[in-house]
Design a binder for these strands. Structure first.
Lengths: 368, 368
DNA sequence: CCGAGGGGTGCAACCGCTTACATGTGCCTG
DNA sequence: CAGGCACATGTAAGCGGTTGCACCCCTCGG
């Protein structure tokens, strides 16, 4: 005995307010009726691969198609205790880096039939509230990069929902993913030395446990390995103005470096431009390298040698890992580390130039 | 008589499967009990500003805080017929343009207490399915730019959910928002003429009703107004390689232009670089201008003169408009058009250079 | 002193699904 | 031929909120 008779037992709300909600959308009852089965059978036929006779399934599918039926997300989530949505927490997006992370995440999630709810945890918004709300709307949450969310909050949420972190200081016991840093940094630094540079400085604040910190370590290691004394460290924020400041300082001090490893491309581009504006030849007098392979890196002269990270893949992996956790998978003890790749252009001053144009950013590959 | 006794009447599911769902999360029942009131009162105290005595409200808020209560999204959505989420359909993101759109949208939504569910409607995924699913998970949907979603599908969804479009061919009767194009294009073209250019070509496929189409119209209008004959039109896709092809063709044909208006910066940057690689002086021999003010535009030499659109604001407006529709607002007959702004750098070859550095992209402004 | 008026609460019926458990049916076995 | 079993389906109890309506109690006015 169907709880509602023929017509849906709507509590006739006649107010002038609101877009008529879920207007006319077919419900599972409609499908059941049309297919001549119970709602339970419809649910099973459409979703769970449980035992449903082929004939029946067919009938249900047909009815569903004819009615253009799409199950209501909220109802499904409530009854099934699964929202089929993944949360993604990012810092305030800018630059291609986060965009790529997002793209990878979304595509992987969508392949798994999951939707993604994003939350920009900038310092200006209240991350506490936003993230807590997010938690009650998704099955699991990925925290990306240095989003302004404290570890304690993540831990709190982790108690009730699966959680992964990506490109972010890892939390003990939680799944973590990031791109390889120290080795690429070492290679890059060594590359500079091979090109004859001897006074190699570092630009960027190497906070412990951060990407830039790891890069700094690699840089140091390469220098130590080659028994070359480390150049000056400019521990500045990874923003453009900071890059300009560094160059000003450098110029004033008589330019005692012949190469600069920058924590990211934003810094590298700013540094390079400021140097050039100051009449310094790049890479002749000072080589400059960075990280991220931003779009602009291919357009500046000389082309910026930089490190491309498989960002999109990182995002995709995060989504897949999260989905696995939601499905009851066990956390992976070891963090997943993806290989970075140096993109040789000309700003490093090495022998084999190669504009780098023939090397599209790796993350582009799966875009087509 | 509470439907569940003391302990929550869980249907003891003991399987090994899945992360224990909503483990221990406080429910409205718990809050009600702790505050010594009914769940109806809790609901009203927390949400609806309906009549609740101050003392009672206080008690409820306290209890809620103590239990760290956050209402379950699914239940709230189901009962309230409001998901409190907005859907955002974007084409496959790349470049800062979509990222900015997204950021604006998300920030505005979050200010309104709404979450945002994104869907990347790239050609590779099945937009039909994805978007239909999205529709059953949100209160309204914003379609941004040329996402691979057909107008018919949008119309179908618009019948059951509020819909807005942004930076996209507008649909009759639906709310639409975009940045001003023809006038900025005309101004830009006029600017080129002022700089003494006389043979001004256009690069980009001017499809009717598209951004680039509108820009082309403005370009044409300016030329006509100045009684200057229009230069060649290179109707190519807005991608890098196309820009290179154009230049190759141009070079082969003896370079019969002294300025090129490009449909977007990607094209402009590619064109400019190819020209320079071909030994052409920019802007001396050929001036180049574009659209979007991408990050790289500030770093290339000469700095790219381009048009900055208030993209983040566009996104924010879309979110707010959508929210208004969801709340029962009437669609706005006239599309909302935001002003674009020309960013003068050096690639246009005009008198007053100004590197443009002192003019941060307008969309950055509200980021801080 | 009694009835009307009204603000504050509680009751309970949903919202549209999922799913444990009951039921029914047909076939195989003892 | 009865009992057992396996499979396909139906029944109905929730999932955790929201909200129309009834009710209670207190304040006033007549």
């Amino acid at each position: 005995m169907n709880p509602r008779g023929e017509g849906r037992g709507s509590r006739g709300r006649g107010g002038a307010a609101g877009f008529e909600p879920t207007q006319g959308a077919a419900t599972i009852y409609a499908v059941a009726q049309r297919a001549g089965v119970s709602t339970a059978t419809v649910s099973r036929a459409l979703g769970g691969s449980s035992k449903v006779a082929d004939r029946t399934r067919e009938a249900v599918l047909t009815a569903a198609r004819e009615l253009n039926y799409v199950p209501d997300g909220a109802a499904r989530a409530l009854a099934g205790r699964r929202t089929h949505a993944l949360g993604l927490v990012l810092p305030h997006i800018d630059g291609p880096y986060y965009a790529a992370l997002l793209v990878g995440f979304e595509m992987a999630a969508s392949e798994l039939g999951l939707s993604v709810v994003i939350s920009l945890a900038g310092p200006e918004t209240d991350p506490q509230r936003a993230v807590r709300t997010l938690a009650s709307n998704v099955d699991g949450i990925a925290f990306m990069a240095r989003s302004a969310v404290e570890d304690a909050l993540i831990e709190e949420l982790a108690a009730r929902r699966p959680v992964v972190t990506a490109a972010r200081g890892r939390l003990p016991g939680r799944d973590a993913l990031y791109a390889e840093n120290p080795r690429a940094a070492a290679d890059l630094t060594a590359h500079l030395l091979e090109a004859g540079k001897r006074r190699v400085g570092f630009v960027g604040r190497p906070e412990p446990d951060s990407d830039i910190g790891a890069r700094y370590q690699g840089y140091l290691a390469a220098l130590a390995g080659a028994e070359v004394e480390a150049g000056p460290l400019f521990a500045v924020d990874p923003v453009e103005e900071a890059g300009e400041d560094v160059v000003r300082e450098l110029l004033a001090a008589g330019l005692d470096v012949d190469a600069l490893v920058c924590g990211n491309d934003q810094l590298a581009l700013a540094v390079m431009r400021a140097l050039q504006d100051g009449g310094v030849d790049v890479p002749g007098q000072v080589a400059v390298v960075g990280w991220d392979d931003v779009h602009a890196a291919r357009f500046v002269r000389p082309g910026l040698t930089t490190v491309a990270q498989p960002v999109e893949e990182l995002g995709a992996l995060a989504a897949r890992r999260l989905a696995a956790l939601v499905d009851g998978g066990a956390p992976v003890e070891e963090p997943v580390v993806l290989d970075s790749q140096i993109v040789h252009r000309s700003s490093c001053g090495c022998a084999h130039p190669g504009t780098g144009e023939e090397l599209p950013s790796p993350e582009r590959e799966e875009s087509r």
